[in-house]
Amino acid sequence: MPMWVQILYRSIALFIVVVAVAQILGKRNLTRIPPYRFISYQVIALIAALISLNVIKEVAFGLIALGVWVLFPIALDYLSLKSKRFHDLINGKERVLIKHGKIMEEGLMQTRLTGEELLRELRSKNAFNLADVEFAVMETTGEINAFLKSGKKPVTAHDLGVKTAPQAEPQTVILDGNVLNEPLASLGLNKEWLRIQLENMGVSLDNVFLGQVDSSGDLYLDLFDDAIELPQPKVKEMIYANLEKAQASLETFALETNDKNAKAMYKKNAQKLKLLMDKLNPYLLR
């Protein structure tokens, strides 16, 4: 066999092997892997390259080495899943770098991190001011995470005491003009429902690039033809506005009528609607 054919065969075979190996090794984020895994990836790549270029003449030898470097990381992963002590031994422990707003110099020493590097990492977490950081830790992957002082954290709805409606993830039901049945069924809807919705909006299915249904069942569409202006769902706002109007009318009736009973009835119902509006506000307007 001429050399070039040999190399061609080996390369094709190894490419398939390496793709399979990458699948086996898992889909973890490559920037956040423990060092031993990083090394094993490198060695695997190197061995594969050497076999493929015929530097390692005996394929079997190369495959043995490759097998060890593939199987050992997997074995280590399983062992560290089973035993916490083993996990700490292999991955190391996270190190506290800032505690109660004070930098732990010995933590910096142990991780061999300079002050500038720490500040850079904190800045990338949007903590430009060291005084804002309550606690920071270096994870076993080398990433630094910071916990801001309570007054410096972004405001949440909970902090403001605002009630918000629970929202589930939207489901994509139309992609590239095709109806996706599975997400549609998971919402308890069917093609007929979709057909009616599209008809109401006056759009044909093959003009829709993307359609999403949010957790309240409203359909949002993006069309191929961007010149068409679509009425985006404003139904909930309409309900709220109508309620508001009805409530105001009831108040007016209560003022206008001379009948005592009717006055009381209007007042009571106006009050009821007012309470209802307060209750529905987070669900309809946000």
Partner: peptide, 25 residues
């Protein structure tokens, strides 16, 4: 008129109460 608009509101609310996934809502 008020009655009619309230009935409209009720109808739409009914649609939402059937097509919403979240139980609390």
């Amino acid at each position: 008129q008020t009655l009619a608009s309230l009935k409209g509101v009720q109808g739409t609310l009914r649609i939402y109460s059937t097509q919403t996934q979240d139980e609390e809502t």
